[in-house]
């Protein structure tokens, strides 16, 4: 090594003695970012990955555990509509399955009892339970009768009001022509009232006759109501059976 040269620290002795050109770059190689920018971009990349993970967790949790109900989607269990979260929808379906389990076997056993000509002892909670269809149909019939009574009450009440008003005017009127007209009107109202009372007593007005819920006709094949043809109204609620 010449004496006028200072030793280059860090280079191996072999390289220094090789008499080859030694090129020392200052700073990062061309095309590469400086260390600060590179570190910052690396950190951002890690944070981006972490954010993606958190978003996936959030969306998945919301899909499973969403507590809301969709009002536009019918539910036979919840009055607010079908639940949105998958967990609650599974719970709803579990309830449906529990309530309707054994229904087909129930009717088959009654038919078997009929075939054997013996009294059936079969019961099903959904049909003849405390909150079953039979109890609700009775309640529905009772509600209909209450509505009917209310309509007759209102009609007779209107007639009574008009009748009392006509009688009041009759007491105040001296004019014989007007009195004659009022007499005719009162007679007409009395007749109408009697007619309404008779209709109420005999239930003879077809427009106000309650049809028993147990005697309504069966659903048509094309009905879009979920209680008639749910596989038409709610096709996604049922999985088609696999044919063997």
């Amino acid at each position: 090594m010449p004496e006028n040269e200072e030793p280059i620290s860090g280079l191996p002795e072999v390289l220094r003695d090789s008499n080859r050109p030694i090129i020392i770059y200052q700073g990062p190689p061309p095309g590469q970012l400086d260390p600060v920018t590179s570190n910052a971009i690396g950190l951002l990349a890690w944070l981006l990955l972490l954010t993606v993970c958190l978003v996936v967790i959030g969306i998945a949790s919301w899909t499973v555990w969403n507590p809301g109900h969709d009002e536009s989607r019918y539910s036979p269990i919840y009055a607010d509509g079908q639940p949105r979260g998958l967990a609650n929808r599974a719970e709803e379906r579990r309830d449906i399955n529990a309530l309707t389990s054994g229904l087909v076997q129930y009717v088959e056993r009654i038919q078997a009892d009929n075939f054997d000509r013996r009294r059936t002892n079969e019961t099903h909670a959904l049909i003849d339970g405390a909150d079953g269809v039979d109890a609700l149909r009775r309640e529905w019939d009772e509600t209909c009768r209450r509505v009917r009574a209310r309509v007759y009450d209102r009609r007779i009440g209107d007639l009574d009001t008009r009748l009392s008003e006509a009688r009041r005017q009759l007491r105040l009127t001296e004019d014989p022509t007007q009195r004659e007209a009022l007499d005719a009107s009162i007679a007409q109202l009395v007749l109408q009232r009697r007619d309404q009372g008779e209709r109420r007593r005999t239930d003879s007005d077809p427009a106000l006759r309650c049809t028993s819920a147990a005697s309504t006709p069966a659903c048509s094949l094309t009905s879009q109501d979920p209680w008639c043809n749910p596989e038409i109204a709610r096709p996604d609620e049922f999985v088609p059976r696999r044919t063997p």
Partner: peptide
């Protein structure tokens, strides 16, 4: 869970819900 019950049994439950709603 949706494999059972079939639409016929589901319809009775829906009918009960409709009766309740109408009442």
């Amino acid at each position: 869970l949706r494999r059972e019950p079939g639409p016929n049994a589901y319809a009775i439950l829906a009918y009960r819900a409709e009766l309740k709603r109408q009442i």
